[in-house]
Every structure is written in C-alpha cells, then in structure tokens.
Write a protein that binds this DNA or RNA. Structure first.
Length: 803
RNA sequence: GCCGCCGUGGUGGAAUUUGGUAUACACGAUCGACUUAAAAUCGAUUGCCGCAAGGCAUGUCGGUUCAAAUCCGACCGGCGGCACCA
C-alpha cells in the first residue's frame, strides 16, 4: 500500500477534470451562480486568495452534488494603478505586466483544484468587455446620470499629477515626497445620489449579514430634516444676487435658539465669485481655509471662523442675526450652511464659547440626568423661549415649525444624504477610456455607439502629460477626432474610468461572456441572475457593493435587466492573519505562501485546514502547526480506504453516520466549514477501528469530496474502481428515522448542577421520569434530608430538582 | 467622538441560531509502545484546586431565571468601519 502523497495525485486530477470539462456550465433547470469577487492580477496568489476561492468551492461542490447546476465563475479585474506603478518602476508596459500576471495567477488558481468555469472567464481589460463598460456609460449619459462637476483632488505639484488617497503618505507624495495640495478639477460624475432612496430601501429583503446592510445604510446616511431659508440683509454691491441662504437642519425645533448663520468657506467663495464684496480679512480667511487639505481641516480639532460682516433674518421671529464663515461647516454636505444653535449642538457650542457668541436655550430636558457644564443639550425635550411653541414636545415641534415655514415659503421638509455622487474620472493611463469627445464649438459630446470600443492606445510613456493632463493626452494621433455633432475638429476625452466601474457589472457578463451584440442577452441573464450568493471581503461592503447595486438599478430602469437587486445573498469572509495574530505583511515577515504549503502538504490539506481553522465569516490566525492535523487526517483516510471489506456496520455506528450526513450538509450550507471538518474527523474516529462495508466507505468519501477533491477522486477511481468522477455523485441522503433515537440521554440536575445522566425514552410522562430520577443513587445522595420544592422537566433534555 | 463586532484551556476553536451535560474537533505538551536511534505512526493523560468526595472556572461587577458562555445593565480590554454629516 502506497503512502498518501498528494504531489503524485493532485495535478493529475486537475488535468483530468479540465480535459473532461467537468465544471463548464450550460444553462439547465437548477441554475445557481456562486459568485466570488474576481481577483486583481497583482502577480502572486497569497493565502487570502485561497481563502476567498477554495472555501466557497466547498460550497460549490456540495451544491452541485445536491442537484444544483452550479456556475463557479472566475475572471480578472485587471485595470488599475499598480500596473502603472510597476510599469514606471520596472520599465515594462502595464499591459505586458498585467497579462504576465494573469497567466501566472491562472496557473496558481488551477492548483487549488477548484471548480472554476474557465470557459466563461472575463477580463476587464479585454476590449470586448470594456466596450460594454463604455456603452453603459453612454446609456447613463443619455439619461442624465452622468455629469461634470468640480471636485477636489490630491495634487502633487512636482509630478504634476493627481494622486489617489493611498498615494498620499502623511500629506506627501509617495513618489517624490513633495507636499500634496488640494486642487479643483472638473471631473465626470455618476449621479448615484438619485438612487439613494432605492439603494437604502432595497436592502430590506436581502439575505445579507446585518452588519453589511447597516454599513450600507450608514454610508448612504439618509437624514430627515428641514431646509430653512434665511433672508440676508446688508449685502453691499448686490442688487439681485444672493439674497437668501438655505440651511439644512434635523432640529427645526431649535429654530428660536438660532443666534447666527454659519456658512462653509466653499459657499463663501461662491458668493465672492458672484460679487459679494467681503472684507479683505474674510477673503483672506476663505482663501486660507480652502487651500488647507480636507484631511488637515478635519484633524485639527480647533474650529476657526470669522464674522462675515453681514446679517441674516430668522424667518420664525424676524430676529436679525450675524453671518459667520467657519471651516467646521462642510461645503459638500446639506446646503453648505448651518443655522447656529449653540445651546443644542456641541460643535456650535464650542464655537460660541471661542468667539463669545450668544447662547440661547430653547429646549428643556424633561428630566435632568446630569449637570450640563461645558456642553450643549442635544437630547429631546420641551420647548421654551419659543413664542407660541413653548411647552410643545421637540419631536412635535419639528413638524409644526417646518409646516409653518412651508406656508410662508421659508422652509420645507428635506431629506439629505451623506452619500456623494460618484467621481468616476481618473487621470491615469491604465483604465477604460471615457467615451466622450470634446469639441471647441459644441462642448462635450458622447462618442457615437458605432465607434465602441474606444480602444486604449498603446503608449510608450504613460506618465502624466506635462500640463498635468492624463497620460492619454500624449497619444496625439488617437486624440484627434471629428466632432460627432458638427464634424469639426475635436479631441477625445483623456480621462479613464475608475476601476470600480469595470467591476460593477462583471457578474452579468459571466452569463453570456462571448456575446458580441449585447453586454449579455436578457434571456441568459434571466437564467442565472440575480446572484443567489455572493461571497467576498468586508472591505467591499460600501463601495463595490453599492456601485454594483447602482448599476443594476440603473440598467433595470433602462430596461436592460429584469431585477432590482443583483445580489440576493451576500456573506463577508474573515481575514487570515499571520501566525502572530497580525495582518500579514512583508515588512512583518509573517506572510504565509500557499505555494510552499501546497508543496509540503498538498492542495487538499491547505483547503481543508483553511476550512478547519475557524468560522469563515471570522477568519483568524494561520497557525503553522495546525495544518499537520488535517494532513494526518487525510493520511488516515487514505490508509483506511485503500482496501474494501464486505461486512455490516453495527447499527449504533450507522446512526452516527446518518447524523453526520445531516450535520455536514447543514454546516456547508451555513458556511460553517470548520465544524463540518470536525464532524468528518469525529466520524473517522468513530469508524476507523471497524471493518467498513463498501457502501459506508463510499458515503464517507462523498462527504469528504467537497473538502478534499483530489484525494477522494484518487481513491474513488483508482482504489474503489468507480468509472466516473466522485464529483458527479449525488450527496448522500440520511434516513430521518434513524436519527430519532429511541432512548435519549436525560440530564438530571439538582439545583441546576448536573448530578447524573439517565437513559430514558423520549416519550415518558413527567411522573414516570420523576420516578426514574429519584431512583438514581447519585441523585439520592444529594437529596438526603431535603424536600424537592420544584420539579422541572424539559422532555428530551433534562430534569432539574430544586431543593 | 459615533456606529458595529468580539472577549471560552498553553494555542486555533466547539456549544450563542433555540438559555438546559461548558471546553467537541484539532494543535501543542507529558508519559508509554515500536526503533540501535531519530522521524513517522500508534496508545494514554491533559481547564484549575483536591488522594478522594467535592469545589471553582467562559474579561470584570451586577440583574433576570429552576437554570446564563448564551438574555439585560454598567465597566474593562481588543478589532473593524466612519470621522466636525448640522
């Protein structure tokens, strides 16, 4: 008998499955797309990739055995910044670098023995793919869901380039170390906020972890309040310009406590731009605040501001109040202006203390719990100093005051969102070109659909252009194009798309990856979508999942898809930490290389250990010694199943077997792979010393097959001499009758402490059980000289005697 | 600061869904078998105190309950997300 040697069997079966196309999917009756987030081709597979792909593969294999037609797709999210960095560093073209990585990682992925359907592989850098990314952009543009607006970007004055947040280290450029400044740039935006309500409302019925739903809700950040109009007085030099300012508040009930209006530097700048003749000090302050980086503005706890020198009128009581400009008011949230209520808002309170502004209490707490010194009272209460609203409860007052303002035209109910529109432009080379044309006469025009895909030109030099424009500005030949409207001279847009755009619809392409006429046919999508289960990282809870949901909703409104939600089920997996319980990183030297582990123990052991180490949704530390346990288990199985015996299993063991079949199935479905593995180990411990009938050996192998696909296949075909792959077998059925035991173990407690365990039939009456319990010597000992005051009987579980 | 999650042996973890035998399964450790020896393998022991009977243990303190790792409250510690959102 040969020793278990994974090296000798694993690649053999991988080739066999590929040759037989075992995992290539066609549409059938019980279609099930098990989706995982497609990888970025970084160049090397790490243990996290195994966790991300090899574990869901256990579920994929299980579902297939239970009769589902499972598609387990794979692809590459292949545009992005690292390719450009590698290109600049190693003088290699981003495309060459990326494609090389894809080839290598494909090889590595195949070493997992997963059931990927490579025939449906999708790559976002494929022009046949990004043609449709561009097409969707154009469709959204037609609908008015794409627009241009000025936003702030991180700008390196030395490299003359836009930096991503992760390229800014301590306020400095990570390449040249010069100080990063904030620069306004006009960028392409997706109007995702128009879908904010749908995105928030649609979460309700989804089978997602509550934390993920909550994460999205917080990110969308819907907030119900009121918009209140303040008339402005004394604006020198302005006749018909800005006479009003709107402020968003969730506390309309505190309107009588307003002692100022505070506007953001951004709003002040807008006023200056339309002719507000502010004092030099104010202009100076606005200028200074705006050049401060947003981060810096938030990090300094100290609020600063300046009296704008003008006045506003409180619409509820016509009080004249000052207007201030302050940097703690955000330009991009609400209306960029707030009504200043220092008595009932902590930030306003701190500001009032610093600049000696009036504090006016208008809400009294119902019960004073603590002494409020140096802080605002932000809770609900009863209104005071509020004219006719005195005595009204604050929640009620919000409504009544807003309604009064609505009548006079000075306010209305308003909803605001934290969610910003999605800035999709990137000033980068390695991305999907935005299909727009800039004509001097006609302005921006959409590229004609027949020109798609607008292919990314092959550049020699993909550093940003000298004027700071995107690298594509250097592709002079590519750049020149006729205006689709006036036929005059025009230029292509040089920005490329955020890679999150590419990944917002890739799962749809899996259903119809070769389609030349559409991004995917409606019929094929209907067969597979929406995705019943999507497994991925928690880091994608807000951005990727929200963007993909936005795409689905937008495409649905355009009539191209039939579902409102793309992902019915969603589970976030945990993170594999290094043996030192820290995040794996090269600098810590705690990185686990899966290739090395596979060489030592085989792919089956690596898969199974990852499954065994802890709950999938939790992740945890990789312990180098732990995998040996799984390897030993596989070796034991190998030895037990190398010769077949023709005997009968004792019925007690048969009951254990059937219970285990049930439990493992449930564990896999719930992604409790860790307890599933331990059940298999228990079962082996239970059966190992017995002579096993062939049927039991088969069942055991079938239960193990999703976890250890290679080894089970080897035994199945070469030892047990079966003709077809074990992975085409049906999942074993358990006999429900066998699982219900005649006699149950009944725990007998005295005062809640377990004193004995008696075997009894589950159908006994309370009186009969009582007799049994009191007859036990172990129990009698504890009852000497005491009365049983209470007798608790939980049928099938326990008896508790209270004395 | 706000929101969320978590805290169980020397270690990873099980039992939390449904309050009902806490520590399954595995690693490690100790002892033993086999071996010239080692590795591998196999067997035994392994929460703490105790010879035992028994007692004590799920971050800490309190509560609900016949019964709490599980539910509730406060605190301590760790992790993740957001970060002046009016």
């Amino acid at each position: 008998m040969k020793k278990y040697n994974p090296k000798q069997i694993e690649s053999k079966w991988q080739k066999y499955w590929e040759a037989k196309k075992v995992y290539n999917t066609k549409e059938a009756e019980n279609n099930y797309m098990l989706l995982t987030e497609f990888p970025y081709p970084s160049g090397n597979l790490h243990i996290g990739h195994w966790y991300a792909f090899a574990l869901p593969d256990i579920l994929a294999r299980y579902l297939r055995m239970t009769g589902k037609n499972v598609m387990y797709p794979i692809g590459f999210d292949a545009f992005g910044l690292p390719a450009e960095n590698a290109a600049i560093k190693n003088n290699i073209h981003p495309e060459t670098w990326t494609k090389k990585n894809i080839t290598y990682m494909t090889k590595q992925l195949k070493s997992m023995g997963a059931t990927f359907d490579w025939s449906r592989e999708v790559q976002t850098i494929d022009p046949d793919y990004y043609k449709w990314t561009q097409w969707m952009f154009l469709k959204f543009y037609e609908k008015g869901w794409v627009y241009r607006a000025a936003t702030k970007v991180n700008w390196c004055p030395n490299d003359k380039t836009v930096l991503a947040n992760e390229q800014v280290v301590d306020g400095r450029c990570d390449r040249c170390d010069s100080e990063v400044i904030q620069k306004e740039l006009t960028q392409w935006m997706f109007k995702i906020t128009e879908f904010a309500d749908d995105l928030a409302g649609g979460l309700k019925d989804l089978d997602w972890q509550e934390t993920a739903k909550l994460g999205q809700l917080n990110w969308i950040g819907r907030s119900e309040g009121a918009k209140i109009k303040f008339k402005l007085t004394d604006i020198p030099g302005q006749k018909d310009g800005r006479h009003f300012v709107d402020a968003f508040t969730t506390r309309a009930d505190t309107l009588f406590g307003v002692t100022a209006v505070v506007i953001s530097p951004e709003l002040a700048q807008k006023w200056i731009d339309v002719g507000w003749r502010a004092s030099e000090e104010v202009k100076e302050y606005v200028k200074k605040s705006l050049t401060k980086r947003e981060l810096e503005r938030q990090e300094t706890a100290e609020k600063t501001g300046i009296d704008a020198g003008i006045f506003a009128v409180n619409p509820i009581n016509d009080e004249k109040i000052p207007v201030w400009v302050a940097d703690y008011v955000l330009g991009h949230y609400g209306t960029g202006a707030v009504m200043f209520v220092p008595a009932h808002d902590q930030r306003d309170y701190e500001f009032a203390k610093k600049y000696s502004l009036l504090i006016k209490t208008v809400v009294e707490p119902v019960a004073i719990e603590k002494n409020l010194t140096n802080e605002a009272y932000v809770g609900p209460g009863i209104l005071a100093n509020s004219g006719k609203y005195n005595g009204v409860e604050s929640e009620d007052a919000k409504k009544k005051i807003t309604e009064e303002l609505k009548l006079s035209g000075f306010g209305d109910f308003q909803r605001t969102y934290r969610l910003h529109d999605w800035v999709l432009s990137r000033q980068r080379y390695w991305g999907v070109p935005i299909p727009m044309v800039n004509c001097l006469k006609c302005g921006y025009q959409p590229a004609p659909e027949k020109d798609l895909p607008i292919k990314l030109p092959s550049l020699e030099d993909f550093k940003p252009a000298d004027d700071g424009r995107s690298p594509l500005a250097k592709a002079t030949k590519w750049l020149k194009v006729k205006c689709p409207k006036c036929e005059g001279e025009a230029e292509r847009e040089t920005d490329t798309m955020d890679t999150f755009v590419d990944s917002s619809w890739y799962f749809m392409r899996y259903t119809d990856p070769k389609n030349k006429k559409e991004f995917a046919s409606k019929e094929k999508m209907a067969k597979w979508l929406p995705v019943p289960m999507y497994i991925g990282g928690a880091e994608h809870t807000t951005m990727h999942l929200l963007y993909a949901r936005f795409f689905a909703k937008a495409l649905q409104k355009l009539g191209h898809v039939d579902f409102l939600e793309p992902f019915i089920g969603r589970r976030n997996r945990g993170i594999i930490l290094g043996p030192d319980h820290q995040k794996m990183s090269k600098s810590r030297g705690n990185v686990v290389d899966p290739d090395i582990e596979v060489k030592k123990y085989g792919a089956d052991a690596v898969r199974m250990y990852l499954a065994f180490m802890g709950p999938y949704e939790q992740g945890g530390p990789w312990s180098p010694g732990g995998i040996i346990g799984v390897y030993r288990f596989l070796s034991r199985v190998w030895n037990v199943f190398n010769f077949a015996k023709d005997v009968v299993l004792p019925s007690a063991k048969n009951i254990v077997l059937h219970k285990t079949i049930k439990k493992i199935g449930e564990d896999i479905q719930n992604m409790r792979f860790n307890t599933g593995v331990s059940e298999l180990m228990k079962l082996l411990n239970e059966l190992e010393s017995y002579q096993l009938p062939v049927s039991v050996q088969k069942t055991f192998l079938q239960l193990l097959a999703p976890f250890a696909p290679h080894m089970t296949e080897e035994v199945w075909i070469n030892v047990m001499k079966n003709k077809n792959s074990i992975h085409l077998e049906k999942w074993p059925k358990y006999d429900p009758k066998l699982i219900i035991e005649e006699k149950v173990a009944l725990v007998v407690q005295v005062n809640g402490k377990t004193r004995d365990v008696i075997k009894a039939s589950g159908s006994l009456s309370e009186e009969e059980v009582r007799k049994l319990a009191l007859a036990s010597d172990k129990i009698k000992k504890h009852l000497v000289g005491k009365d049983v005051k209470k007798f608790i009987y939980v049928p099938g579980r326990l008896i508790n005697l209270v004395i």
